[in-house]
């Protein structure tokens, strides 16, 4: 952080949207795993995600922003293609984060 002489006066923040630099993905205990082959691009996950972490390109879901996704699981829970027990048929599957962290 800058010294007092260099900070914007009055704590004004002039770089809009800069919180993206803060990686809330670190908080995640559960990871939504996206299985593109089962996705119907209904955008239900996108419209409900509290953390703007569903990545959509050209009206297609292309993945998850793991830098910011906190792993709440709303996307997988609401996804119409992720009901039932058969994981292979789901578009979004919640998996424990440690499985992935160990791989890192």
């Amino acid at each position: 952080m800058k010294g007092w002489k260099d900070l914007e006066i009055g704590a004004v923040i002039t770089n809009p949207g800069s919180s993206a630099e803060y990686k809330t993905g670190e908080w995640r205990a559960w990871r939504p795993v996206f299985q593109r082959e089962n996705c119907i691009d209904c955008m239900i996950c996108w419209v409900f995600c509290p953390d703007s972490s569903i990545i959509v390109e050209d009206k297609k879901v292309v993945g998850i922003d793991y830098e910011h996704c906190k792993g709440c699981g709303i996307c997988a829970f609401e996804c119409p293609k992720s009901k039932g027990d058969d994981e292979s048929k789901k578009a979004l599957v919640m998996k424990p984060e440690y499985l992935f962290r160990e791989e890192d």
Binding site: P16, S19, A20, Y22, S53, E67, K70, C72
Partner: peptide, 12 residues
């Protein structure tokens, strides 16, 4: 609104 906000996990 940009991500990286500190709302709790699952905060609607």
């Amino acid at each position: 609104i940009a991500p990286g906000h500190r709302l709790c996990t699952g905060c609607v």
